[in-house]
Simulated scan of single mutants.
Amino acid sequence: MSDYKIRAYQDSDYKVVRELFSAGMSEYVPSICIHVLKQPWVLFVLTCMFICLLASSKSLILPVLAVTLVLALGRQLLGYFWEMYLDHCLKEDLQDISKTYMHSNGSCFWVAEADESVIGTVAAKPSDEKEDELILKRMSVRKDFRGLGIAKALSREVIRFARKGGYRSVTLNTLMVQHEAKRMYESVGFKKYIEFILPTVYGKLINFTISKYRFDLLNAE
């Protein structure tokens, strides 16, 4: 495997950075579907539908087909909502990466590069809530380059940037399905300090949990 280097974002990286973000986030759709399927009310509805159809039709085929159809439709619906979220991100801070991160005070965007190809990304911007807090965002590593410590190196790049900028802490958000990401951040030194359900009808309906992590720069010195 080739060595990699971490450097500042360039405008020529624009297309591949957006593609890398979309591909990485799209990998979570199956996990989100399983998460939704495990919700008690979902299991209850599917079970009731199966029993009712089985009792009324006197056949196993109809309820099996009906549940299969509902699951397929649910998968498509979740995929649609997830695509909407990705599209929102691409039209938000990733619409003009240079303006958002490279030309704004206290912000930066890095890429990890191997064999002249971008294989990882991470960004940082000041928190809107606390002046001395930096937010780590847009962490992504290409699938075939994972497990090499690239994500850890990108995380430490943000931490160095925060320390140089005089910030007291670095924070980030993770989703309930990002198990590997959580373990990686914890190995770097981030600690979970709050967990909450997304305060929307959709979030409450499927128990869409967000965990916030913090790296305390004062304690790390």
Rank of each mutant, 00 (worst) to 15 (best):
Y9G: 01
V122E: 05
D87C: 11
E157V: 11
R163L: 12
S127E: 01
S127R: 05
V70A: 10
L90K: 06
F21P: 03
Y202K: 12
E129F: 09
G149K: 06
A181Y: 00
I6K: 04
A66R: 01
K152T: 11
T68C: 11
N219W: 05
F44K: 12
E195D: 13
L62K: 14
Y80K: 11
R142G: 10
G166Y: 06
R160C: 15
K91E: 12
L53V: 03
E157M: 14
S155N: 13
L134K: 04
L60C: 10
F161L: 09
V67L: 08
G79F: 05
G147Y: 03
S187T: 14
L65E: 08
L78Q: 10
M84R: 14
S117M: 13
S59I: 02
Y9N: 01
K38M: 12
D96Y: 12
D115P: 05
K182P: 04
F215R: 00
T47M: 13
K99H: 11
R138P: 05
E19S: 15
D11V: 09
D128V: 10
F190V: 04
G149L: 03
S31L: 13
R18N: 11
A220M: 08
S98P: 01
I197L: 11
G106L: 07
F196S: 13
M176R: 08
G147L: 03
L37F: 09
F215P: 00
S57T: 15
L53R: 03
E83G: 09
E113N: 10
Q10C: 09
P40V: 06
S187P: 07
W110G: 03
K191R: 15
W41L: 14
V118S: 00
S12Q: 00
L54V: 04
L136E: 02
V67C: 10
S187F: 08
D96K: 12
A8L: 12
S107V: 07
G189E: 06
A220T: 10
A124W: 01
I150S: 07
H88L: 12
G149R: 08
T200F: 08
I194T: 15
G106R: 08
R163T: 15
L136C: 10
Y80A: 10
L148I: 07
E221A: 15
D132G: 06
A151K: 02
F208N: 11
V118W: 03
K191G: 02
L78N: 09
N219Q: 14
L205P: 01
H103I: 09
